[in-house]
Amino acid sequence: MDAFAIFIQAMNGIQYGLLLFLVASGLTLIFGIMGVINIAHGSFYMIGAYLAWSLMGWLENFWFGLFVGVAAAFLLGLVLEWMFIRFLYDRDHLQQVLVTYGLILIFSELRSVIWGDDVHSVAIPALLDGSIQLTENLAYPIYRLWLSGVCVVIAILMYFGIQHTRLGMMIRAGESDREMTKALGINIGLVYRFIFALGVSLAAFSGMISAPISSVFPGMGSQVLIVSFVVVVIGGLGSIKGAMVAALLVGLIDTFGKVMSLDIFGINIFPEMAGMSIFALMALILIFRPQGIFGKEY
């Protein structure tokens, strides 16, 4: 690989990492504030991508579709919180895992009923369709740049919100504490519903904006969920900074791992195993820093 190719792969890795950050931060947000482990989070990403595919088809306008999709996801989040999640706050992790696992099955089957099991692709919006010419024969797509930019903006907003609001204080504490929330004089029920819906929209939004660059396929939800779990374990809980660093790390390692087949001592061992590099990273973190890079000791 020459320098430009490395540069392009690095850009791709960062862009993938930023996208992962959006998904993983929703997961952290929901756990950090409400104490609920939501393994259906990946389903919302998948729903987002399928919504993007449908909406762009009907509305024939990417931006309007994006808006409608996020609004729909937010509504879905509100309804789900009201129907299921609000019963889980005082329950143990096992029940939370099971209820959200049930939701995964429901969403995946509904997806199959509504959209079928085919793989689809979504067109890049005309406005962002094109590339920036880097050298004579290397170009970088504008859409990917835009996507990274959007993620960075959301990350900054989120960072600001967490550093400078009372709710953010609770997230930084890393542990949900209803007593403390009460002490702050907040209507917990409403705040929780809002936060959950926000998390759902974040995941769905990530799915929507990623649809044009990856294909839309049935297993995309669990794939992104598992990688987000890896991100959270590496980054440590209660730390948006940790989620960001871990997401970028995972994005870069995964991207480079897949491009350069793994050469150890000049022997090429299982080029396919490169896809497992992020799990190897997680194993290393578990050995040397089980609380995650930025996590507090427990």
């Binding site: 756990f31 482990i37 992790h93 598992i226 195993m273 578990l286």
Partner: peptide, 22 residues
């Protein structure tokens, strides 16, 4: 087992999936 609670759940899932991908 170096982790607890929600991290335990997440890391068991991740390691299991690592075997799946492998």
């Amino acid at each position: 087992l170096r982790t607890k609670g929600i991290f335990f759940i997440m890391s068991t899932l991740a390691l299991g999936e690592m075997l799946f991908y492998f």
